[in-house]
Amino acid sequence: MAPRGRPRRRTRLGRTHLGSREACVSIGRLPDEIVQLAPGTPLRDGLDRIVSGHTGALVVLGTNPALAAISTGGFPLDIRFNATRLRELAKMDGAIVLSTDLTRIVAAAVHLSPAADVPTSETGTRHRTAERVAKQVGLPVVTVSASMDTISLFAGAGRQIVPRPDQLLDRAGQALAAIQGTRQRLNDSLDRLTTLEVHDSVTLRDLAHVAQRFEMVNRLADEATTYISAMGGDGRLAALQLHDLVDDLTPLSSLLQRDYVTEGAEAMPFATLARLDDHELFDIVLVARSLGFGGDLHLDSPIHPRGFRQLAAIPRLPPGVRGQLVAHFGDLGALYGASTGELLAVEGVTPEIAHTVRDGLTHIAERALTN
């Protein structure tokens, strides 16, 4: 019963990250269960009908033995779910229990008796029961408040008001705007890194700043994906915007990791930056250490790219040849200094490819030096 138009959960961009403190402010994550309540889904349709009818409700999203142990009374139903049935059953006292896949109504008018010692911060009877049930049995519980006309989700330890479609659109817009700004700063950092690479003057600090900006884009993209997923079919255009902003960053981060991988490691662990909290992400020393660089290097220590990213920017250069060139010359500086004859000594390099490499690197250097 997944919402129509729901974007797939993206793979992280390769673990990368950012550096501007103002951009790192979280817009506020939504729990994954809210995606099940996206506009356009049958469940959300039924809940909206309950809100419109000014009727309260308590709906358990799933079943398990722990729930059965605290359930008494009610009417076993096991009927196909639809919005009208949910609305009519909500007129009775007690909880409505749905199947785990949300396709069937298992029971209605069920009396739930969670343990009284389960802590709750709620005051209303329905909400106190919902919070205790969610904590005790580990299932999401949805409530509709008759007096406030709001839908709440209890999942795990907290309560989340289910946003209205206009609120989700606003949050998605904020996230996309934050991504756009951070992406521009990332592009600026990458341009600067290219210039430093041409001069063979990259330091660990420079790489760490680029990695920070990649990670911030990752975090903002995760939040935006949650909002867009929760919008159901209404999030299609926002999903296209998000795709346009970040889709090219996964291969780019992979090239950077191959360029600067530490000796003896298979890949630079950009993914480890995900373990840093937002405050730690601004500690450039922690970022550098998380990338696998040891304590013998300081932030101003020079580091040398292998050349994968710049070679990938050269059109019509076969991927296999890129690897041969890097393996033969070892780093980007040696590639820039290689003569045509030295390039031709590399396996797979023809006179045409050698000419392409020389022209391509010259063009990258000229563009970097004029920016």
Rank of each mutant, 00 (worst) to 15 (best):
D101W: 10
S121Y: 12
G74D: 00
A109V: 01
D149G: 06
A108L: 01
G138Y: 03
V110S: 01
P65N: 08
L139A: 04
V106A: 07
L102K: 13
V106D: 04
V133A: 05
T150Y: 01
L67D: 05
Q136F: 01
V162E: 04
L102G: 09
G138A: 07
F154A: 00
R159T: 06
L86I: 13
L169K: 10
D166W: 14
A134S: 07
A68D: 15
S99D: 06
V142K: 02
G158K: 15
R171Y: 13
I70Q: 06
A109W: 02
G94Q: 09
Q136S: 02
D166G: 01
A115S: 14
V106N: 02
A83P: 09
L102N: 10
A68G: 12
G156K: 08
A155D: 13
A157Y: 14
A134H: 00
A68V: 12
N64E: 03
A83T: 10
A109D: 09
M148A: 15
V141I: 05
G158P: 01
P65M: 06
K91F: 08
L112K: 10
I151Y: 12
D78S: 06
T72A: 11
K135N: 07
R104G: 05
P140V: 07
L153Y: 01
A172V: 00
E131I: 00
H127S: 07
D170E: 13
T72H: 08
R132N: 04
R159M: 11
V137D: 11
H127C: 02
A90Y: 12
A109L: 03
A83M: 09
A146E: 11
E122P: 02
L86H: 12
I79A: 15
K91G: 13
A83Q: 10
T123V: 10
A108D: 03
P163K: 03
S121T: 13
V137K: 09
L169R: 14
F81I: 11
L168F: 11
S113I: 09
A90C: 14
D117Q: 09
V142E: 04
A115I: 01
D93A: 08
L168Q: 06
L86M: 13
T84E: 11
R85V: 02
F75C: 13
V110K: 00
S152T: 15
F75H: 09
V118A: 15
M92L: 13
S71Y: 03
N64C: 06
S121I: 11
R171K: 15
A134C: 01
A155M: 08
T143Q: 01
L77F: 00
D149W: 10
L112A: 09
A157H: 13
N64V: 02
A90P: 13
T125L: 08
I70S: 05
S152M: 12
R126T: 14
I151P: 09
T72M: 03
E88P: 10
R80N: 10
A95R: 07
L153M: 03
D101Y: 08
A108Y: 00
I79Y: 15
S99M: 03
G156V: 03
E131H: 05
M148K: 15
D166E: 11
T125I: 15
L102T: 07
I70Y: 06
L86V: 14
R164Q: 15
E122K: 07
M148W: 14
R159S: 07
L102P: 09
G124I: 01
P165K: 07
A155I: 09
G74I: 00
